[in-house]
């Protein structure tokens, strides 16, 4: 770890921004470290990286890091990110979202970003709870678990983010945890260099708002539990535990490339005849 600290520091903003908002025992900083190393190892210049977030604890991640950073409204990180990517396809657009941000209020955008398969990397830090807003249950809170808004146990079933992403058409879908740092780093590195929409779900911990209420032990024990409660896909046969690893990895035709091509075609026609599809359905009709 000591060896790697100087690298991270080269990517952190020096002015005014520390300490972080994150509680002791939080896993988000581990994800930020992996993200920085993955981007560094992929050789992407800082100027080309746009880090977009919504609202929540994970939403505060961009401000600390020396990329182009955009902290938006709750659930809308992917919409802003889509705009950035379509405006400038040279940029490497990465969104960081929590489970509540990405899958509850932003669930609709998540589905359609997968469906469009637009070249954005979505890192979803899943700590099973709305942390910043006071510990309300999220779409990934396990059934029966205690939260500020489910004091007698969460009624609903939880959603599997990776299954959702794969079924909706994302190009790359993987899951890791903050315990499995090297695995997470490799997944993020692959995600940011693949074409199409890529999703890396990182299981994380929220000691303050979730762990304490559900007797999950110390932060250290919560980190450890992520090791014990997950299993690599390759060894998962018959195993009930949460699967880790790469669920899908297929390079797909790039959405924003197609978009650029359509724009170029439309511009060609600009001076002359309108595109056939853009002709009015009726001409000289009713006043």
């Amino acid at each position: 770890m000591a060896r790697k600290l100087p690298l991270i520091h080269r990517y952190l903003r020096k002015d005014k921004k520390f300490p972080t908002v994150w509680c002791p025992g939080c896993g988000i900083g581990v994800v930020l470290g992996s993200l920085i190393r993955a981007v560094h190892n992929a050789g992407i210049p800082k100027d080309d990286v746009v880090l977009v977030s919504g609202i929540g604890c994970t939403g505060r991640m961009p401000v600390y890091v020396d990329f182009n950073t955009l902290h938006t409204t709750h659930g809308r990180a992917l919409t802003f990110a889509s705009g950035v990517r379509l405006a400038n396809p040279k940029l490497k657009v990465i969104t960081v979202m929590g489970d509540g941000d990405a899958i509850a209020i932003g669930g609709n955008h998540f589905i359609h970003a997968c469906r469009r398969n637009i070249e954005i990397t979505a890192i979803v830090v899943n700590n099973f709870i709305y942390g910043m807003t006071g510990g309300q249950f999220s779409p990934t809170t396990p059934t029966g678990d205690i939260s500020a808004t489910s004091p007698y146990g969460n009624l609903a079933q939880s959603v599997d983010i990776c299954e959702l992403a794969r079924d909706c058409g994302a190009s790359y879908v993987a899951r890791s945890t903050i315990y499995h740092v090297n695995e997470m780093e490799k997944q993020i590195a692959r995600a940011v260099t693949t074409s199409g929409f890529s999703v890396v779900e990182v299981l994380s911990t929220c000691y303050s708002r979730y762990g304490k209420l559900n007797q999950k032990g110390s932060p250290r024990e919560m980190f450890r539990a992520l090791k014990d409660q997950t299993v690599p896909i390759a060894k998962a046969d018959g195993d009930e535990r949460i699967n880790r690893g790469v669920f899908i990895d297929r390079a797909e035709a790039a959405y924003s490339d197609t978009y650029q091509a359509i724009m170029a075609k439309a511009r060609e026609h600009d001076a002359g005849e309108p595109l056939p599809l853009l002709k009015p359905a009726r001409t000289g009709g009713t006043p």
């Binding site: 182009n68 902290h71 950035v84 400038n88």
Partner: peptide, 22 residues
């Protein structure tokens, strides 16, 4: 400045200082 033009800065919906930080 547009993102990608070389000035890396922060944009947020929080109140911010002239540097863009909350």
């Amino acid at each position: 400045a547009a993102f990608g033009e070389g000035y890396r800065y922060h944009v947020t919906g929080l109140h911010h200082d002239p540097a863009g930080y909350p």
